[in-house]
């Protein structure tokens, strides 16, 4: 009897929460899937169009370009962020003076809002950098604007990833290095064969984290380029927001969102599989 009463409490806690979660996570997800088979503009009536939105997605050059840009950003960004934050973490973890102050200062970008940071960098790219390089603004250049987005995203993400790498480096016991030193490991070899394998789980976290965040980039686009110039920096999230809500493409962008969801899940799962298998090998 007593046991039964306990279970009742557990269910009384669980069920309302599941209802809430379903209502604002699963239900809109299903709704989005349903809208993706319609020509809804976001208001008024709509007709069923079957799979036409999906067929159109693959021939729509604007959608194609947004995927191209987002992948370009995510790939280059992930590499830049992880290389730099790994170097920074190794430096911040060595025997340096002002260690805790330096760590604290290097973390600042991560606590600031991406939108405001984007506005500040927008000014930097428009008025300061052209003066130094004697050229036009990167943001106005179709070939370079996406690099500016990478820089701003990296500026913030490096702070976060560095802290995670530092916490990884602190799990490496000192005597491993001492044993390694006896075998003559130093410099690059020490890093390659001792440190890196031991912080591999943290590498996995950081790769997945930065890739996922970059694929979903929105705030930086909003404040830096608004998708321009000539739609060269339109991220997928930005396109769904822009054309789905204001552009009368509610149904079409819902189909885009469904594909985007599948892409994100696939990439995350593949990344974790691949990196986990490497973790086990090491």
């Amino acid at each position: 009897m007593h046991f039964g009463k306990n279970m009742r409490t557990y269910y009384l806690i669980l069920i309302p929460v599941l209802v809430l979660f379903f209502a604002f996570n699963t239900f809109p997800l299903i709704n989005g899937l349903i809208y993706s088979f319609t020509n809804s503009k976001g208001y008024g009536g709509f007709d069923w169009v079957g799979l036409r939105n999906y067929a159109d997605l693959f021939s729509d050059s604007r959608v194609g370009n947004s995927y191209l840009f987002t992948f370009k950003l995510a790939l280059l960004g992930t590499v830049v962020i992880n290389v730099l934050s790994l170097v920074l973490a190794l430096a911040l973890n060595s025997k340096i003076k002002f260690k805790s102050s330096l760590r604290g200062l290097y973390f600042i970008p991560n606590i600031l809002g991406a939108l405001v940071v984007g506005y500040v960098f927008n000014y930097f790219f428009t008025y300061i950098l052209p003066y130094l390089t004697h050229s036009t603004s990167m943001l106005a250049d179709k070939g370079w604007a996406w690099v500016a987005v990478v820089v701003v995203c990296a500026w913030q993400a490096i702070a976060m990833n560095t802290i995670i790498y530092i916490s990884g480096l602190q799990t490496v016991p000192e005597d491993i290095y001492e044993a390694g030193a006896l075998d003559g490991a130093s410099g690059w070899n020490k890093f390659r064969y001792l440190t890196f394998p031991l912080i591999m789980p943290f590498f996995t976290i950081n790769m997945v984290l930065s890739m996922k965040n970059l694929l979903m980039v929105f705030d930086q686009i909003m404040s830096l380029t608004q998708g321009g110039p000539a739609q060269s920096t339109e991220s997928i999230s930005y396109l769904i927001y822009n054309n789905g809500l204001a552009g009368g493409q509610f149904g079409f962008q819902s189909a885009n969102a469904v594909i985007f969801f599948i892409v994100i899940v696939t990439i995350s799962v593949l990344q974790m599989r691949f990196l986990n298998s490497r973790e086990e090998q090491l």
Partner: peptide, 8 residues
């Protein structure tokens, strides 16, 4: 991601 749920 929020972008998927946003419109609905």
């Amino acid at each position: 991601p929020f972008a998927i749920l946003m419109l609905p």
